[in-house]
Amino acid sequence: MRCIPSKEDMQRELEARHGKDLQQKFTNSTVAICGLGGLGSNIAVSLARAGIGKLILVDFDKVDISNLHRQQYKADQIGRFKTEALAENLREIAPYIKVETHAVAVTEENLEELLSEADLICEAFDRAEAKAMLVNGVLEKLHTKYLIAASGMAGLGSANSIQTRRITNRFYLCGDGISDVADNIGLVAPRVMLCAAHQAHMVLRILSGNFEP
């Protein structure tokens, strides 16, 4: 392995950019990401770069050739669990991050156990039914968490229509709300990354004490 900076050097650089107090909040926080596709893999990269202390990554799926056009995986990772491949990629970016992985499907039954340690939870699933299940489950069962979900980022619609809205005190929703991948408009990397960036950015804003979108 090539020479990498020490943990202390990396922490000092993050503190120089974010301020010591804010970086301490980032370092001490745990964020769960449910779904590691175009949204989740990009959220994870943003949060790892920002110096979030611990990520909990949840996805049952394996890297497929059809993922490479928008997701943060590499061609030689096809066939591997996304949890494992993403953890490896994150450690290349942020070698001292703590990553906990669960290669399972999130269900109403296991979500409390999987997500109880997280301070904030990002919903990053693909299917509308899975999104609704997670949102209802988290908001009904895990009252102290912040939840940042996404809906509507398919196609080549305007980048400017992707927004963050605050639905309840602890529930935020990013996206344009309408662009459904089921309408055969596909997903392109920049628009999915925009939505993922909205989610990751809202995580950082909440941790910094800014609760408005």
Binding site: D126, L173, D180
Partner: peptide, 30 residues
């Protein structure tokens, strides 16, 4: 009115005069 309604309570939740409701409709893609 700012709180999520549990799915199991849709049948017993009677809408009151002045309630403010949002139905969040999820679409696919991610």
């Amino acid at each position: 009115n700012g709180e999520i309604v549990p799915k199991a309570k849709y049948g017993e939740t009677v809408l009151q005069e002045g309630d403010v409701i949002e139905v969040v409709n999820f679409v696919g893609g991610g």
